[in-house]
Design a protein around this nucleic acid. Structure first.
Ligand SMILES: NC(=O)c1ccc[n+]([C@@H]2O[C@H](COP(=O)([O-])OP(=O)(O)OC[C@H]3O[C@@H](n4cnc5c(N)ncnc54)[C@H](O)[C@@H]3O)[C@@H](O)[C@H]2O)c1
Ligand SMILES: NC(=O)c1ccc[n+]([C@@H]2O[C@H](COP(=O)([O-])OP(=O)(O)OC[C@H]3O[C@@H](n4cnc5c(N)ncnc54)[C@H](O)[C@@H]3O)[C@@H](O)[C@H]2O)c1
Lengths: 224, 224
DNA sequence: ACGCGCTTGTGCACCGATTCACATGGCACC
DNA sequence: GGTGCCATGTGAATCGGTGCACAAGCGCGT
């Protein structure tokens, strides 16, 4: 496409989705003192195919040593670099209800390089309260919160009916990446990255498989 | 294709994942009084391609009327039937910490046909407490809880280190469907359906796109 | 110094999913 | 009753992902 400085070429989406899983396994390996890891070990750890692991890692230019494997430290560095550039990305949570409170206190965020930098809510009864040592600020100050703390990720934890509004506020504040927990389809400009985490959908998918299993089991007894 | 009793044939996974989204949109339409809906309307509502919607619905044998569209009521019935058979599936939550408490009080579960029927935890300090009107029972009684309330879905909300153990307990109790919130790869027998909901991974995927956008923006300014 | 064994890196074929484009067919209006 | 319009349903091409299978390469032991 271009003829120049594309040291990091494009990485397939499916690969990107697996990189965090590799990273978790690698960190565990490093903590237990392992210096190198083979693709089959890493595949086993991540629950995927070994050839898939090798192909994934080849996109990162994180080459291994034939006959030996990959260097754990080096892999951790390369994957971290690809995923976040090594810089932490502060997040702001919109909607501090049941879910928002749980997320506010989730230590996995800061551990993964996503410190919670701001909490906002529309309800005056919630604004001003302290959750996990941070004060909840009014949603009108969202833009201020973002600029003050340099947030680059917004989390929507409002009711479905307010999800689009929350997304609009986040976009207006300049947030380029949004994670939406509300079970609603929200629309954002195409230069904004939006991902959906939908509990109810996940359960319904499980329900489908369960239902199908029972139905086919009752009729034929064949397993897919 | 064959001459038997397969009224409901197999539905592609990608389609199954979209059905809940259609269902949500259709319920909204029904509430606002719409009697019929076209594939383009539904596609817009769900954020997907219209041809995709039509192909998806064709798997359900939920045929529409040419020139008119699909009957909203009928579609709701067909999708609900395909997803859960119409029967509610009680869920049991393992690990009543920050996240488990939020999930216990999530009204979207019961609305979607997944009433929370049991809460269990390994910590004696948590056992016996009441969350959302339900008592937390010891994890040793998991099998009893499951048989008493007929749970068919298990939710893992324990720390990562305990996730495999929790999964083993659920499998031993006869649970066929598991939703895992712990950021860990857990292994289950192949006749058990396991789905992963991984917050940290979602954020890291967002981080990748953000990082890439910045990097390519600084170099070329091209958007993909 | 040399060969053997182990692991990487990848070409290729298969598979599911998406999307275009168009034929098919029912409804409403005249 | 006939005709035109409009949305469905689907054939076929395309695309991205997966996984096998094997050649290439590195290190270690002899
Ligand atoms: N509770 C859970 O465990 C859970 C699990 C999965 C998904 N969800 C989804 O997450 C969302 C939040 O769930 P919850 O249980 O925390 O609900 P909640 O009602 O407890 O909290 C919602 C919060 O959002 C605030 N809010 C409403 N409109 C707002 C706006 N326009 N701007 C900013 N804040 C606003 C409210 O004041 C409230 O504090 C819902 O969409 C729900 O479906 C919840
Ligand atoms: N808190 C969040 O918002 C959040 C968000 C996403 C994912 N998660 C993940 O969800 C899991 C729970 O998070 P949390 O913040 O609620 O943690 P937590 O420590 O608050 O709660 C964990 C609970 O699990 C119980 N537990 C531990 N071992 C158990 C076992 N073997 N059997 C049954 N119960 C056991 C503990 O007693 C505790 O009550 C973690 O894996 C976390 O990474 C949490």
């Amino acid at each position: 496409m271009n003829g120049g400085s594309d040291r990091r070429e494009v990485i397939p989406e499916a690969t990107v989705a697996r990189l965090p899983v590799y990273l978790r396994g690698l960190v565990e390996l490093a903590e237990s003192g392992m210096a190198t890891v083979s693709s089959v070990e890493l595949a086993d750890l991540a629950g995927v195919n070994a050839a898939n692991v090798r192909k994934d890692l080849s996109y990162l230019h994180a080459h291994g040593t034939r006959g030996v494997g990959y260097q754990v430290d080096h892999l951790i560095g390369e994957i971290s670099l690809a995923l976040g550039g090594g810089e932490p990305s502060p997040v702001v949570i919109v909607g501090i209800g049941n879910l928002g409170r749980a997320l506010s206190q989730y230590d996995g965020f800061v551990a993964g390089g996503f410190p919670v930098a701001g909490l906002v809510d529309a309800d005056p009864a919630v604004v001003g309260r302290y959750i996990g040592g941070r004060v909840v600020r009014p949603v009108e100050e969202l833009a201020d919160v973002v600029t003050e703390s340099g947030c680059t990720v917004g989390i929507i934890a409002t009711p479905s009916a307010s999800a689009q509004e929350a997304a609009d506020h986040l976009v207006a504040a300049g947030i380029p990446s949004i994670l939406n927990f509300a079970p609603a389809v929200v629309h954002v400009p195409e230069d904004v990255d939006l991902r959906q985490v939908d509990l109810a959908t996940e359960l319904q998918i499980l329900g489908y498989h369960q239902h199908r299993r029972m139905a086919s089991g009752a009729n034929a007894g064949a397993v897919g």
